[in-house]
Lab assay of single mutants.
Amino acid sequence: GLPEGWEMRFTVDGIPYFVDHNRRTTTYIDPRTG
């Protein structure tokens, strides 16, 4: 799974992105792969 505090969501286009609730940021880069 994802690191603690992270969540995976999808855009309206079906593109996955990642929400970091710890820092309240979003990124398209998987936190597991950097």
Rank of each mutant, 00 (worst) to 15 (best):
L2F: 09
D20E: 04
P3I: 05
R32Q: 04
T33M: 11
F10H: 11
F18K: 00
I15V: 12
G34F: 13
E4I: 11
G1W: 12
V12D: 14
P16S: 05
T26E: 14
D20K: 03
G5S: 05
E7S: 11
Y28V: 08
R23W: 09
W6Y: 07
P16L: 09
R24A: 15
H21S: 08
I29K: 10
D13N: 12
P16I: 11
D20G: 00
T33W: 13
P31W: 00
T27H: 08
I29V: 11
R9Q: 07
I29Y: 09
P31D: 03
E7Y: 07
R32G: 05
T11N: 10
G14S: 06
P16M: 10
T33E: 13
E4D: 12
G5V: 04
H21Y: 10
V19K: 05
M8I: 10
T33P: 13
E4N: 11
Y17I: 10
D30Y: 00
R32Y: 04
T33A: 13
T25G: 08
R23M: 14
T27Y: 08
G34P: 14
T26H: 13
G34Q: 14
E7A: 05
L2Y: 03
W6G: 00
Y28Q: 09
G34M: 13
E4H: 12
I29E: 12
T33Y: 12
Y17K: 02
R9T: 04
R23N: 15
Y17W: 07
G5P: 04
H21W: 11
W6P: 01
G1Y: 10
F10R: 06
T27I: 04
G1V: 15
T11K: 03
G5K: 06
F10D: 01
Y28F: 15
G1Q: 14
T25H: 13
N22P: 08
E7R: 01
D13L: 10
I15L: 09
G14A: 05
G14T: 01
I15P: 03
V12L: 12
V12S: 11
E4F: 10
R32E: 06
D30S: 00
W6N: 01
E4M: 10
F18D: 00
L2A: 03
P31E: 03
F10N: 04
R24G: 15
V12Y: 12
D30R: 00
I15Y: 10
N22Q: 14
E7Q: 08
R9I: 08
R32S: 07
R24H: 15
T33Q: 11
F18E: 01
T26G: 06
N22R: 05
E4Q: 12
T26I: 15
D20F: 04
T25Q: 12
V19G: 01
G14I: 00
V12T: 14
D20W: 04
P16T: 08
P3R: 05
